[in-house]
Simulated scan of single mutants.
Amino acid sequence: MIPAFLIILACQLAGEVAARLTGLPIPGPVIGMALMLLGLRLSPWLREIVRPVAEGILKNLLLLFVPAGVGAAAHLVTLGGNLVPVLVAVAGSTVLAITAGALAYKLAARAVNVTAEAGE
């Protein structure tokens, strides 16, 4: 379990370092996720090591939203004064996130089908 966490954190650190060294307008964690994806695609060993930890994180993902909810509740007065822009931002970002997720799923499904057909 600890090696898997170290691998995940190493990918994030590598992404942060790459983002800062190159000056790319891409966040370090996104670069780290791309590195992790590349590693998972290339190494069955890495997939087996990281899988249990990744599943555990995904099962408890809702806990990561608790600090954001507490922060929002702490700044309720500020949010109330800007209610319309906040609601528009939340609704808009939700629609964009769902759309991006659906498109990513569609692309991934297409890639898996292409790979499966090529392997047969």
Results as ranks from 00 to 15, higher is better:
L64F: 10
T115A: 06
V53W: 00
L13W: 08
V90S: 05
G71D: 05
V70Q: 14
G15V: 01
L35N: 00
V112E: 15
G69M: 08
F65E: 13
V53S: 05
G28P: 01
E16F: 05
A74N: 09
L6G: 01
V77M: 13
V95L: 14
A89C: 05
R41L: 13
I8D: 01
S93P: 03
E117W: 08
L35M: 07
S93W: 14
I7H: 01
W45Y: 12
L87F: 10
A108G: 03
P25T: 14
G92W: 02
K106A: 15
L76M: 15
G15I: 01
V77F: 15
A100K: 15
R47M: 06
T94L: 11
E16R: 11
C11S: 07
T22L: 12
R51L: 09
V50P: 00
V70K: 14
G92I: 03
M33C: 08
G28C: 09
P29Q: 01
L9I: 01
V17N: 07
F5R: 09
R110F: 10
V66R: 13
L21C: 15
L6V: 02
I31T: 03
R51C: 05
A18C: 08
P52R: 15
V53I: 11
P27D: 04
I57D: 00
P52S: 14
L24E: 04
V77Y: 15
E48N: 04
L9N: 00
V90G: 05
G23F: 06
I98F: 14
A14D: 03
A91H: 07
L62H: 11
V17L: 12
Q12F: 09
G28T: 05
A108C: 10
L79Y: 14
L42G: 02
P27L: 12
A74Y: 03
V53N: 03
V90W: 10
T94Q: 11
P85W: 08
P52H: 08
V77A: 08
A18H: 08
A100D: 04
G23S: 13
R20L: 13
A109S: 09
G23A: 11
L24S: 07
A91K: 11
V50F: 00
P44L: 13
V66Q: 08
